[in-house]
Write a protein that binds this DNA or RNA. Structure first.
Length: 927
RNA sequence: GCCUAGGUGGUGGAACUGGUAGACACGCAGGACUUAAAAUCCUGUUCCCGUUAAGGGAGUGCGGGUUCGAUUCCCGCCCUAGGUACCA
């Protein structure tokens, strides 16, 4: 029988599904291993060949771990709330739930074709009420929690209330809004219910307050910082403006330091760790106050270089700074107003793009230098950002390039503060020299000066050491329909939680998925949608990242109706051991998920500080477009003629995208091309060597470029096993690369060779029970060792090559020994599960047992290396490969090498000066 | 600008801690089997010199360095991709 992937693969996929082959067993004996893929958003376009790359890798890893005796959890689900389904609903009126359901079914079909070992009984969908019930429940825990800086963890709000009742606001160390009030215990007890709630809201981890948000008018919603790229929306590229709105936020800043520290304990790719570090943006420095007697106030600045404080020659405020109006003198009022006016007209994009032009305006006011008492001018300029630090900086032109340019432009003093500075051409921020012009720190080094200055500022109550973070609290509301409703209602303008037993708060039906006429979110259209028929619900929904910030817990215990995950399940599965997905989630999902994980840990629901122990980013798979070249006539109009790539320079041509599915190894199928578009029916081809060769280009995979390759098509031609092997063979997992179907034949050929090892020339199944030869064992042991090493370091592409070598060797040896072949297919199973399962059964084993068969150990492992060639060089010139046994000691090796005829001849009787050993091997003989 | 990753044949890529660079695969060229095709198999394939061969030389982005020996380590530079950006 020939290798028939079509019937064989369907058969096993159905068998696995029917028998639940990949359900982890409830076991305490086996060690657990949790392998997770980033679950997909089920888009209408279906999967293309790039999507399964990471899934295949994680599947290989899962199957490998099962073979090694682990109890493996390997689930899959859908992140099914999101914008595209809603946009589609706006256009067509079709309910997003319907679109989503259709898309999920399509995804499932495509995933099933690839033969993944998912335990589908654990599937989750974030848009299912049974799932988002718990997303809402977790939101309630966040609403009902505050961050205690003293214990360095989140605590239920009750402990804060208790503190207020007994001590008032005194001694509380909490992460909170900056406008919290101070009160005594008795004052607290006299507060009205409303006043108490208002105060508590300033401490909650999920809170409501007026904040500046990224408003995208085109999408009709606010966006998180990570959803805004270069001033436009990540999705659609629409303009984004700053706007003040009442918004739900998550106090992620409370966790800034723990999120940062945690990065050191996890095994993630360096670029990703770096991205999170930059996003959190910790800078250590000092806050310094500059008194402004004129308005009886002070300007607080943040600096990372307090050592340069004697170089301060002016202060710059952001144009939006709250003190600007009060400071401005009458003489400067018009200059300031016109400058503010100009900056506010500049879009966010312009302001970012234009970093060259120096601009600013003098307020007319002066502040007192905290240490010298001298007057310093106060300016405003748009290079100072309102959103970072205090929105004000102390300008040190000798040490900071922006301040330097500003000083030059407006002819402000530049004071050198170090004996090693060179400030002729530019600012010099070096910390190497000793200070000059610096009063109490003159002659000191950087290390010495900093503590002296901080102490002095503290004495004067004009400053202190401070750590600043770039990260802002995460906006949590979207003015959208297709998301989780926030389980909150409003009484007297204040938010109150629903009762737990009232969950889930179901997404109500609406007539249209657009904002209301009064500009409220779509949920405002829901009729009779009121809490207890009288209180308004929250009308915005949760953002896309809500459902994905805890989903790995749900897989552990997906059908639990009493809790989001049971204690037993989370105690057993703990955290995700291996997480595979794209790096585009670096500052979104992966940060929020870590945040929620920490909150849930603090509140006692589990014990893991980090959710994802090891993370691998699979590279992006780009498209590889093919082009045909249409010949143009004298008037520049397209003709019926198409010229092959190699000859196109002899004609005037225009390149046209051609469907990559009718191109094979860059050679066009001209008959199918004629059917590709009606106007090509009469196409004439100018060929080279009898073929039409297409041009190529690497682009994003998209329908409009006709370069989308559907895995289903590959599978129907070559089979799922070929697809799996080929995706791995394409190159290193973490590297981005264009998809190129050229070369898949090689992998397909390999599988047919595997099949033929088990069959005689007539195609009849035939294996022998004879004892294998040494050479046969050697081939087997080599591949076992290689695959084991490769999988552990995620080098799947080299394993595929090694398999090819192994099978070629066994073919050359005409090996059909059961002892060899059975172990071979166990090793191959993670990569090509269908063909191996079939052969496993042909060998007389029970169906379905291959998944849990023991990974073969090689008791005769020495065979791998028993013949070893020593690369011996003389005077650095590599000359000899001497076959030697491995178990000889260095002295014996030396004797054999020197006695070898070739070596003797090369030495020509000269004396040996030195023999260089590396790890017990002779590497070089110096004469 | 800064941070991170990377640069190897016609192509994808290999070389795991410094030890015969180019494994494996595609493509290409030639051949066997076949009426023919498909399938399968064999041979060659980094570049240059050498008509063939034997043989020689160069070679892992560029220029230096360390070493008996460098794709691998160090210094400087160039280029590509991703991230980030008046962050004080």
């Amino acid at each position: 029988m020939e290798y028939n992937h079509q019937s064989l693969e369907k058969k096993w996929q159905q068998f696995w599904a029917k028998h639940g082959t990949f359900k982890p067993v409830p076991s305490t004996e086996k060690p657990k291993y949790y392998v997770l893929d980033m679950f997909p958003y089920p888009s209408g376009a279906g999967l293309h060949v790039g999507h399964p790359l990471g899934y295949i890798a994680s599947d290989i890893f899962s199957r490998f771990k099962r073979l090694k005796g682990f109890n493996v959890l390997h689930p899959m689900g859908y992140d099914s709330f999101g914008l595209p389904a809603e946009q589609y609903a706006i256009q067509t009126g079709q309910h997003p739930a319907v679109t989503t359901e259709v898309n999920i079914n399509r995804y499932r079909e495509q995933l099933d074709n690839i033969g993944f070992s998912y335990d589908w009984s654990r599937e989750v969908r974030t848009s299912d009420a049974s799932y988002y019930k718990w997303t809402q429940w977790i939101f309630m825990r966040l609403f009902d929690a505050w961050y205690n800086k003293e214990s360095d963890r989140a605590e239920p709000l009750a402990s804060l209330v208790q503190h207020f009742e007994t001590h008032g606001s005194k001694g509380i160390q909490a992460a909170s809004d900056d406008d919290t009030s101070t009160f005594t215990a008795s004052e607290w007890s006299r507060f009205s219910e409303e006043e108490q709630q208002k105060e508590l809201l300033k401490y909650r981890l999920a809170y409501l307050r007026e904040s500046t948000v990224n408003w995208c008018a085109a999408l009709g919603t606010v966006l998180a910082n990570d959803e805004v790229i270069n001033g436009v929306s990540e999705r659609g590229g629409y303009p984004v403006e700053q706007k003040k709105m009442m918004q739900w936020s998550m106090r992620i800043t409370a966790y800034a330091d723990r999120l940062l520290r945690g990065l050191e304990t996890i095994d993630w790719p360096e670029p990703l760790v770096e991205m999170q570090r930059n996003w959190i943006g910790k800078s250590v420095g000092a806050s310094v106050k500059f008194p402004v007697p004129q308005i009886d106030n002070e300007i607080e600045v943040f600096t990372t270089r307090v050592d340069t404080i004697f170089g301060v020659s002016f202060i710059v405020l952001a144009p939006e700074h709250e003190l600007v109006d009060a400071l401005t003198t009458d003489g400067q009022r018009s200059a300031i107003e016109s400058y503010k006016d100009r900056t506010s007209k500049k879009s966010e994009l312009d302001r970012m793009a234009d970093t060259k032009t120096v601009s600013g305006a003098f307020t007319g006011a002066f502040a007192k230098h905290p240490l010298t008492g001298e007057d310093v001018q106060i300016w405003i300029a748009d290079y100072v950002l309102a959103g970072y630090g205090t929105g004000a900086v102390m300008a040190v032109p000798s040490g900071d390039q922006r301040d330097y340019l500003f000083a030059k432009h407006f002819e402000l003093p530049i004071i050198p503060i170090s004996d090693s500075q060179n400030i002729e051409e530019a600012a010099d921020p070096n910390k190497d020299g000793r200070y000059i012009n610096s009063d109490i720190v003159n002659g000191m080094t950087y290390q010495e000066a900093v503590p002296v200055l901080i102490n002095r500022l503290v004495e004067l109550k004009l400053g202190k050491a401070k750590v600043n973070f770039r990260m802002r609290d995460a906006i949590f509301g979207r003015q959208r329909y297709w998301g989780e409703p926030v389980p909150v209602y409003f009484k007297n303008g204040l938010p109150y939680l629903l009762k737990e037993e009232e969950l889930p708060l179901l997404l109500p039906e609406v007539d249209k998925y657009l904002p209301t006429e009064t500009g409220e979110p779509p949920l405002g259209r829901a009729e009779n949608w009121k809490y207890q028929d009288q209180y308004e619900y929250e009308l915005s929904t949760m953002p896309g990242w809500a459902g994905s910030s805890w989903y790995w817990f749900r897989y552990m215990d997906p059908h639990n109706e009493r809790s989001f995950v049971s204690k037993e399940a989370v105690d057993y599965w703990k955290a995700v051991d291996l997480y595979i997905g794209g790096s585009e989630h670096a500052t979104g999902h992966l940060l929020y998920a870590r945040f929620w994980n920490k909150v849930l840990k603090d509140l006692g629901f589990h014990n893991e500080e980090e959710p994802f122990k090891k993370l691998i980013n699979q590279g992006m798979v780009q498209g590889r477009s093919n082009f045909v070249y249409r010949v143009l006539d004298e008037e520049g109009k397209g003709t019926n003629s198409f010229v092959s790539y190699g000859l196109k320079d002899q004609y005037r041509t225009v390149p046209l995208h051609v469907d990559v599915n009718i191109v094979h190894n860059d050679v066009l199928d001209t008959e199918r091309f004629k059917a590709f578009r009606p106007d090509f029916a009469n196409a004439v081809f100018i060929l080279e060597n009898g073929k039409y060769v297409c041009g190529t280009e690497v682009e994003k995979m998209s329908k409009s470029k006709f370069n989308v390759v559907n895995p289903d098509d590959i599978i129907s031609t070559y089979g799922a096993d070929t697809l799996r092997l080929y995706e791995m063979f394409l190159g290193p997992l973490e590297q981005s690369k264009p998809w190129n179907t050229n070369g898949i034949e090689g992998v397909y050929k390999f599988l047919r060779k595997v099949w033929r090892l088990f069959h005689d020339t007539e195609g009849t199944f035939a294996v022998s029970d004879e004892e294998p030869t040494k050479a046969e064992y050697k081939a087997l042991h080599k591949i076992i060792k290689k695959v084991e090493e490769d999988i552990e370091r995620f080098s799947f592409n080299t394993s595929v090559s090694a398999f090819m070598i192994c099978v070629n060797e066994l073919t050359d040896l005409k090996c059909n020994k059961r002892a060899i072949l059975q172990d071979l297919i166990i090793v191959l199973q993670p990569y090509a599960p269908h063909i191996t399962e079939e052969l496993w059964c042909l060998l007389g084993n029970e169906a379905g047992t291959l998944s849990y068969a023991a990974y073969p150990r090689f008791e005769a492992a020495y065979l791998v290396e028993s013949e070893f060639a020593y690369p011996v060089s003389i005077n650095g010139k590599m000359k000899f490969n001497l076959p030697l046994a491995l178990d000889l000691d260095a002295k014996a090796v030396e004797e054999i090498v020197l006695a070898h005829a070739d070596v003797q001849r090369f030495l020509e009787g000269k004396a040996v000066k030195k023999i260089i050993f590396v790890k017990g091997k002779i590497i070089n003989v110096v004469v």
